[in-house]
């Protein structure tokens, strides 16, 4: 029963965060918000019992993806703040 409640919350927050990541104009902010998306995806996988996928999502989402995205943005020009 508990897992169904968690499922509902995670999916709800996931949609909201995805909308924010689309809505934000600043590239830096968008990539950081994408980090939250990956946290929530990790929770979703863990809660469904797909443990190995969750671990991959956790390491890649927390360690690599944000860093690589921001390293790329650094070589572009920062356009607008929000």
């Amino acid at each position: 029963m508990g897992l169904e409640i968690f499922n509902t919350f995670i999916l709800l927050l996931l949609v909201v965060v995805a909308l924010v990541a689309l809505r934000v104009r600043d590239l830096l902010t968008a990539s950081v918000v994408f980090g939250v998306y990956s946290f929530l995806m990790c929770l979703l996988w863990a809660e469904m019992g797909a443990v190995d996928v969750a671990f991959t999502e956790a390491t890649v989402g927390a360690g690599i993806s944000t860093v690589v995205m921001i390293a790329t943005i650094f070589n572009l020009k920062r356009k607008s703040s929000d």
Binding site: D52, T56, T59, G63, I64
Partner: peptide, 28 residues
Amino acid sequence: VLAHGHVSPGGGFQGGVVMGASFILIAL
């Protein structure tokens, strides 16, 4: 993580990513 991929979640890919993140952390 790499060595206990057999008994708990994890394995080569995850361990490699964490290891790469440690070097990136030094660079940062």
